[in-house]
Amino acid sequence: MLDAKNISVAYGNRLVLDDVNFIAQAGQVTAIVGPNGSGKTTLLKAITGEVKCSGETRLDGRILAQMSHADLATRRAVLPQSGNVAFPFTVLELVRLGLTNGCATTDVAAMDALPHAALARVGLSGFEGRYVQELSGGERQRVQLARVLLQIWEPVLDGVPRWLFLDEPVSALDIGHQLMVMQIARDFAEAGGGVIAVMHDLNLTAMFADHVTLLNQGRVKGDGQPHEVFTDDHLSACYGCALRTNTPPPFGGTWLLPQAASQWMEVAE
């Protein structure tokens, strides 16, 4: 379990996170949502130890601030929002950086084949020899995801869950790959690992997340299962526009989407 208590972060005089409590369970996908500038990414950075904050974060019982970099790297991997690469690495060379701390798996013999497996997982088999700089934005995002997945290849190591922190993992992806990446997150959680993802797409969040934390102006405005948090009032207030959520009727009910209707009865003719 990741348990963050009373997290506050200030950039200069501006309070970006104000006394935020955040809990995520292993075996679940936990999403952090909210409008631009609500503090989603800052919260992710606070609970990964990337920015200094007041409050305390515990990762499976251990205080985050007291863990070494090497220790943390075996417990969790972090996918940042954007990543530029300084030198012309090939895709394979970049993905292999996920093996830096050498704890991807306990099976040392399998280590050399893992980067290829990680690339296959994100749909980039055959990209090994390409230069990272030559890839499209979406491909680059998936290469970085492969690197991150490789770092904690086994979702549970020595009986302890490992954690995947994703900052807008689908922001540059087409719809097919969005579904693919969210499914990867789901599978990781179902295998026993923990996933915490900053999300913009509320539909994908509703589809794949077990738990949602809704932020606005640095404060928690909602916390619970997607259907509990994604209410018309909550969302409209946070996002500053009138939003209507919908749910399909229980199985067997007929459901019409008026947007899908055509003007005249062409079908009948």
């Binding site: 990964t48 130890g49 990337e50 970099h69 090497a70 943390l72 790297a73 075996t74 969790r76 991997a77 972090v78 940042p80 990543g83 530029n84 690469v85 300084a86 030198f87 690495f89 970049l94 950086l97 996920g98 830096t100 701390n101 770092q151």
Partner: peptide, 12 residues
């Protein structure tokens, strides 16, 4: 090469 935060997350 991936930036300082990423290097730290990788255990450096």
């Amino acid at each position: 090469a991936l930036g300082e935060p990423v290097a730290a997350h990788l255990g450096v």
